[in-house]
């Protein structure tokens, strides 16, 4: 059995969203069975099935290197502090 990741798109401007996963022997079987696993009552207008083996997953260790990078975080506090200092100097 293969595992397929299921993406469902509602009518309108919504994007495809991950709805869950399912198992089937092959893609043809998955297309027949997906309807009743994920769209029994008109929950979506379009459905994508992606064989999990075809997903390129990125190593979490690579993503871990982006935690605690203060210089990539701009919450505006440095600019606010500078503006406050300049205001006080001008007055």
């Amino acid at each position: 059995m293969n595992t397929y990741e299921v993406f469902l798109k509602k009518p309108g401007k919504d994007e495809f969203r991950h709805a869950g996963s399912m198992q089937a022997a092959d893609a043809d079987m998955a297309t027949v069975l997906a309807r009743d696993s994920y769209c029994r009552r008109g929950e979506g207008e379009h459905l994508w099935l992606i064989d999990r083996d075809h997903i390129v997953a990125v190593d979490p260790d690579v993503l871990a290197t982006t935690v605690d990078l203060a210089h990539r975080t701009n919450d505006g506090s440095a600019v606010a502090a500078r503006r406050k200092r300049l205001r006080e100097e001008a007055s």
Partner: peptide, 11 residues
């Protein structure tokens, strides 16, 4: 025989 087929058959 498996969950997905159970759902389809019962539908």
């Amino acid at each position: 025989p498996f969950l997905e087929e159970d759902l389809a058959f019962c539908s």
